[in-house]
C-alpha cells in the first residue's frame, strides 16, 4: 500500500462478493440440475406458501433430488428463523 492510498477511499473487495454469490447460486443450480424442470418453480411456490406463515429469507427453501436404486427422492428442507429473531432478506 502506498502513502497516497490512504488519501483515496478504499475500494470494496468485490472478488469476495462474487465468490459468495457464486457459491450460493452454483450450489442451488447443482441441486436441481439433474431433476425435473419444474423444480425451481416448485421451490419458489413453496417459498411463497411458507412466507404466508413465517418470515423466512429467499434461500430458506432448498430442494434436492437424490437418485438411489429404488428411484428418485425429492428432499425438501426449510430453514426456519430462530425464535424471537427477525430474518430480513426478503425478495
Amino acid at each position: 500500500m502506498s502513502l497516497l492510498d490512504f488519501l483515496r477511499p478504499r475500494p470494496k473487495n468485490t472478488a469476495n462478493i462474487a465468490r459468495e454469490r457464486l457459491r450460493i447460486i452454483v450450489a442451488q443450480e447443482r441441486a436441481t440440475r439433474d431433476g425435473p424442470d419444474y423444480l425451481p418453480l416448485l421451490r419458489n411456490e413453496l417459498l411463497e406458501v411458507i412466507r404466508k406463515y413465517v418470515h423466512v429469507g429467499a434461500d430458506a427453501v432448498q430442494v434436492n433430488v437424490e437418485r438411489n436404486s429404488d428411484g428418485e427422492v425429492l428432499e425438501l428442507s426449510v430453514a426456519l428463523p430462530e425464535a424471537g429473531k427477525a430474518t430480513g432478506t426478503g425478495g
Binding site: 475500494p11 472478488a15 462474487a18 465468490r19 457464486l22 452454483v26
Partner: peptide, 17 residues
Amino acid sequence: RVEAGEMMSVGDVEEIL
C-alpha cells in the same frame, strides 16, 4: 487485480467449480 480484491483468484474459481 486479484491481489487488490477486484478479481476472483484461481483458488476461488477452482473451489467453486
